[in-house]
Design a protein around this nucleic acid. Structure first.
Lengths: 187, 187
DNA sequence: TGTACATCAGTGAACGCGCGTTCACTGATGTAC
DNA sequence: TGTACATCAGTGAACGCGCGTTCACTGATGTAC
C-alpha cells in the first residue's frame, strides 16, 4: 500500500482539476479545492507551500503527462513532418483527457507571475519540435515552431469545446504543416 | 468642450489599461483602477454597472480600435493573400500600441464567464478573414481562419515581449499564409 | 507482550486583508421666473 | 440681474464576504526497550 501522504496530495491535485473545470483559474481557490477533496483547509498547506505552488504542481503534472505521451508517440522517428504530425496527434489526445488543466494553462498566460513560472516547462516542448522545422527547411525554425504550437493549442481548444477529436481540424493543421516549408525556404 | 462625463469614463478605461499592464487580469481590481484614475470608488459605479461591465467596455474599446485599423488597411482589396497580409500587419500594429488589453484578451480566454462575453466580438474578426481563405482554396476555410488567427495572436505576443515589430515573425506568418493553401486544396 | 515515547499527516478555528458593491450625501452647473 | 430649484457626476465611509495563511492541537502509526 502506498503511503497516504501521496494519496492526499494527488487527491488535492485531482480536486484542483475539477474546480478548474467549473470555475476557471480565477475561481480556483484553496477553499474550493479542499471542499472538493474533502480534507481540512490546513491539510492543503501540509502538501503545498502556498496557492502558487499548488498551481505550479498542477501544471507540472499535466506537463509530465503531455511529455510522456508525446515522447512515446515519436520514438524512433527522425525530425520532419511525420514526427510533427504524430507529436501533434498525441498532444491533442492528452489535452482531450485533461480539459481543465489545458484551459488553465491558456489562462495563466495572461498572469505575469504565473506565466513566467510555467514558461520553462512550455519551452521544453518547443525544443522538441524545433529540429523538425529545421529539417523542413524553415528559415526561422524557432519562430515557425512557436507559431505552429499556437495553432495546435488553438486546435486543442476547438476539440475541447466539442469534447471530441475533430478530424477536419487535424487535417487542416497537417496541411499547413506540410505545405508551409518549401516557400519559406525559397525566400 | 466635451462633457466631463465622457472624460471620466475614458480616464477609467485608460487607468484599467495601466493597471492591467502591471497586474494582469487577476490584479485588475476596482480599487486599483480608481486609485490610478484618481477618482473616488463610487465614481466607478456611476459609469459602470459592475466590474464585469468594465472589463467588457475595455474589450469593446480595444476591439473597436482593431476593427477600425484593419478595415482601413484592407479597404478596396479583394479577398486573398494580400488582404490577409495587410490585415495581419494592421492587427499587429494596433496590438503593439495596446499591450495591456491584448494581454487581457488572452487571459480572459480561460475565464468561462468572460470568454463567452468576448466571444462574439472576436468572432466578428474571423468573419472578416474567412472569404480570403475561401479564395485561397482551403477546404475548411473557417478552421483555417481560426488557426491562422491563433498564429497571428501568438505573433503579437512575441512582438509585445520584444516591444517592437519583429520582421522575421511577420515573414514567417506570411510564408505560412501563402504556402499553406495549395496542398489543402488538393486533398 | 506491554508501555512509553516520537513522528507527522491531518484538523479547523481564527487572523487580517482586499475585494466588489451600496448609498446618503455634496456641490457645480443649468434652467425658470 | 437675482433667487430658487433641479439635475447629476462625483464622493467616500461603511457593509459583508471569501480569500490565503497560520498554528496549537489530534490521533494513528512506528520504534525502543
Amino acid at each position: 500500500m502506498p503511503p497516504r501522504y501521496l494519496d492526499t496530495r494527488e487527491a488535492l491535485l485531482d480536486a484542483g482539476e475539477i474546480v478548474a473545470t467549473y470555475h476557471g483559474l480565477a475561481g480556483l481557490s484553496v477553499n474550493r479545492v479542499v471542499a472538493e477533496a474533502h480534507v481540512a483547509k490546513g491539510t492543503f498547506y501540509v502538501h503545498f507551500a502556498d496557492r502558487d505552488a499548488f498551481l505550479d504542481a498542477m501544471h507540472a503534472r499535466f506537463h509530465a503527462r503531455v511529455r510522456e505521451h508525446v515522447l512515446a508517440a515519436v520514438r524512433d522517428l527522425d525530425p520532419g513532418a511525420d514526427l510533427l504530425e504524430r507529436a501533434t496527434a498525441a498532444y491533442l489526445d492528452v489535452c482531450l483527457e485533461n480539459p481543465a488543466v489545458k484551459a488553465l494553462a491558456v489562462e495563466a498566460r495572461g498572469d505575469p507571475e504565473l506565466s513566467s513560472r510555467f514558461a520553462e516547462r512550455s519551452a521544453s516542448l518547443g525544443t522538441l519540435s524545433e529540429p523538425s522545422f529545421i529539417a523542413l527547411g524553415w528559415q526561422s525554425p524557432k519562430i515557425a515552431a512557436r507559431l505552429y504550437q499556437a495553432m495546435v493549442s488553438e486546435a486543442s481548444m476547438l476539440e475541447l469545446e466539442a469534447a471530441k477529436r475533430l478530424p477536419a481540424v487535424r487535417r487542416t493543421l497537417n496541411a499547413w504543416l506540410r505545405a508551409g516549408a518549401p516557400i519559406a525556404a525559397e525566400r
